[in-house]
Design a protein around this nucleic acid. Structure first.
Length: 415
RNA sequence: GUGACCGUAGCUCAACGGCAGAGCAUCGCCCUGUGGAGGCGAAUGUUGCGGGUUCAAAUCCCGUCGGUCACCCCA
């Protein structure tokens, strides 16, 4: 007796059925075109890496979230946790083959062994763009401009970029750090000012071991911080690259959780969707050196493709009208099947995406019902009358119009 | 990783210790050259899974898997 296997997906992993998959493909297409438009080159890396490449890069906390296994050759391996680490490996491994100023994009799935919840999964897609090999503010600005445009191209009405400079945070907060409470720890608390009240953050700072006065002073210091020359320059270039001044906001309390940022940091959000950031990034000039052994400055962003699609879908920005099957060719009966086959060939030669009903035994009403359910806008009927007059009946499923036309007029009528 | 809530037909849910049900969806027919509306009929379950308590468990208890939410962290 064969054991019955229950079909199911792994916790935190998802299937994308046709409707969902089509939306994702639609979005990925727009994003990829934008990246290409801004001169970024594609890069793909394997899902699996040697575990030693992945582990120990962001700290012990992140290491726990890396999927690791032993393969049948007894190698310690792991699934990629992000796209930055594998790219750092590529930079170290192929340094002679890559351009000095390397700008690449990467749209791939990453894996994290986290507890899933809303908008968070164990396998999800990240869109990365980065510029390697320079500390020029122009490269920071290019990343911001391209990110902004990708969101705009997807159809988001307003896109806001919050920007700050880690240097501002370090310079103004260093004075408050102690053996007990590091600057990075203070910065992590500061990062919460966006979501939490000031009182909450002050309480957290006190809990971390700072005095009431110091905690209050930190808040007022950071609220009064002024913009850096570096940031001014980056913003000015983004304006010249066509990003409206009002969509770039200097937010001195923006901190970003990751420790490795060294300069400009930024986050993207879409106000219509909520305050949650859809992506973030910044400059990380030391990370690649730590990862691959060679010092290469870098700036980039990763945005969450899944959340972006969810937001776009919620705001009705994904129009699939012209995607998918345009025409269903029905089969009147078995003996007229050759006529239907002839038509479907013609349609496909004309580059019209079309489907032939798959069962010649089914009656016409069933075939129409099928088209209706799948949302196919046109149906072609070829019965004895049509065959006799060398025509076809073209039915528009949305307007309910129906006309009998010559076969050669088909393509132009549908388009 | 910590904590809370929830798993009953394809979907949304009812039954809350005593015969497992409804609406929607599906399929068939009304309708042998035309979908969406309507009418009639049919099919659908080891109540997520495993164990325990009980004369009796969908219901109570434990475990497990899955989902949702918050924290942490992030995308």
């Amino acid at each position: 007796m064969r054991q019955k296997i229950e079909p199911r997906t792994l916790k935190g992993f998802r299937d994308f059925l046709p409707e969902e998959a089509r939306k994702r493909q639609y979005a990925v297409d727009i994003i990829r075109k934008t990246f290409e438009l801004y001169g970024f080159e594609p890069l793909e890396t394997p899902a699996l890496e040697y575990a030693e490449i992945l582990l120990g890069k962001y700290g012990t906390e992140a290491d726990k979230l890396v999927y690791t296994f032993t393969d049948s050759g007894n190698r310690k391996i792991g699934l990629r946790y992000d796209q930055t680490v594998p790219t750092a490996r590529v930079l170290a491994q192929y340094q002679n083959q890559l351009p000095k100023y390397f700008r690449r994009y990467q749209i791939q799935n990453v894996f994290r062994a986290e507890k899933p919840q809303k908008g968070r999964y164990r396998e999800f897609t990240q869109c990365d763009i980065d510029v390697f090999g320079t500390t020029e503010p122009l490269s920071d600005a290019e990343i911001i401009a391209c990110t902004y445009q990708a969101f705009k191209n997807l159809g988001f009405e307003t896109v806001k970029i919050k920007i700050n400079d880690r240097a501002i945070l370090f310079d103004s907060l260093d004075q408050f750090a102690s053996d007990k409470v590091s600057v990075l720890s203070v910065i992590q608390s500061i990062d919460k000012l966006d979501k939490m009240s000031q009182e909450f953050v002050v309480a957290e700072l006190i809990k971390k071991g700072l005095s009431d006065q110091i905690a209050e002073k930190i808040i007022s210091t950071i609220n009064n911080a002024t913009i850096s020359a570096n940031l001014k320059q980056i913003i000015s270039i983004t304006n010249q690259l066509g990003i409206p001044r009002e969509d770039i906001l200097f937010v001195p309390t923006l901190a970003r959780g990751l420790d490795y940022y060294t300069g400009m940091i930024f986050e993207v959000s879409v106000p219509e969707y909520g305050t949650n950031s859809l992506g973030g990034g910044g400059r990380y000039d030391k990370l690649i050196g730590q990862l691959g052994g060679i010092d290469i400055p870098a700036v980039g962003i990763a945005f969450g493709f899944d959340r972006m699609v969810e937001a776009a879908d919620k705001l009705n920005l994904i129009k699939l009208g012209n995607l998918g099957t345009q025409v269903l060719v029905t089969i009147f009966n078995k003996s007229l099947l050759p006529s239907s086959l002839e038509i479907i060939n013609k349609l496909r030669q004309k580059n019209i995406s079309s489907e032939i009903y798959i069962n010649p035994e089914d009656k016409l009403d069933k075939q129409l019902k099928y088209a209706d359910k799948k949302g196919i806008p046109y149906v072609i009927i070829i019965g004895p009358d049509e065959v006799k007059s060398n025509q076809v009946t073209l039915k528009n499923m949305t307007t309910n119009d129906q006309q009998t036309i010559k076969i050669k007029e088909l393509a132009s009528t549908i388009k």
